[in-house]
């Protein structure tokens, strides 16, 4: 196998592994649209990174965290519903990113790559960043698993039982931000949420415990990465969208499997 394909495969598998448990929480906490908004803001992060000349992964993470803070502040200060706010922020940050990038005429960037991913162009350097980021998310997620599950089930009950709710929630947002930064190169800002929620939704039907669902989501996501990359390799389709299409196909296939009961 050529090196770029090996890199792509490793990057995709590692992302799917992390996206499984994190995506399960996105599904349980009904935060799909929140994830979508954060990933739209990633493009603004890229522009910011180019402007300030810092690592794009760091810039994207910072951009997402900044957006999460703005969102929380807006939620507290005015009466608009969350989905309205998310809609405003998602599209205005995406547009802001595109407008900012257009000002930087001296820098040639591959916009399609950012929007829909450029998995086959993952370099060894990129891979190292991705592995580091994913490992960080995985370790933090293991550590936060129980408190995060507790606040997902009942926030006040968890608080009375001594869970530092605000800190755990912030940590969760940070984890999503890091995963978006990792995933941007793989499926692009417009498709990131699908990698979080489609495998989790597919695993949900057959899981009996939260852990089964998280692990099942990881495995299904990894399968989708393999199938998608194969499709891309043999049929010359774009890698990111091929992975998403494979994940969606797996999700639909799950309905044909009889539900255990």
């Amino acid at each position: 196998m050529p090196e770029f394909l090996v890199n792509a495969l490793i990057a995709g598998l590692v992302l799917a592994l992390v996206a499984g448990p994190l995506g399960s929480f996105v599904v349980w906490r009904r935060m799909a649209y929140f994830g979508d908004t954060l990933s739209h803001a990633a493009l603004f992060g890229v522009a910011l990174g180019l402007l300030l000349d810092i690592s794009p992964m760091l810039a994207v993470t910072l951009g997402c965290v900044l957006l999460a803070v703005v969102l929380v502040l807006l939620q507290q200060r005015q009466p608009l519903a969350s989905d309205t706010l998310l809609g405003i922020l998602a599209h205005s940050t995406l547009s802001l990113g595109l407008v900012t990038l257009s000002f930087m005429r001296e820098i040639r960037i591959d916009l399609m790559g950012y929007l829909f991913g450029d998995l086959l162009a993952v370099t060894s350097d990129d891979l190292l960043w991705m592995l580091g980021g994913s490992l960080l998310v995985l370790v933090l997620l293991l550590y936060l698993w129980r408190p995060l599950l507790a606040i997902t089930v009942h926030e006040e009950l968890a608080r009375v039982e001594g869970v530092p709710v605000v800190a755990v929630r912030l940590a969760f947002m940070l984890l999503i931000a890091v995963v978006i930064a990792v995933a941007m190169k793989i499926v692009g800002v417009l498709l990131i949420t699908s990698l979080l929620i489609i495998p989790a939704a597919a695993a949900q039907r057959h899981a009996r415990t939260p852990e089964q669902m998280a692990l099942g989501a990881s495995l299904l996501g990894m399968l989708a990465v393999c199938v998608g990359l194969a499709l891309s390799w043999f049929a010359d389709t774009p890698a990111g969208p091929s992975i998403v299409v494979s994940a969606a196909a797996l999700f639909l296939l799950g309905f044909m499997w009889p539900k255990p009961d």
Partner: peptide, 19 residues
């Protein structure tokens, strides 16, 4: 208590959330 239908949680697992 409202637990999302998508979260597979038995009574025992629910009680295990207590440290």
């Amino acid at each position: 208590l409202h637990v999302e239908a998508t979260l597979p949680l038995t009574v025992e697992r629910f009680l295990r959330l207590v440290p």
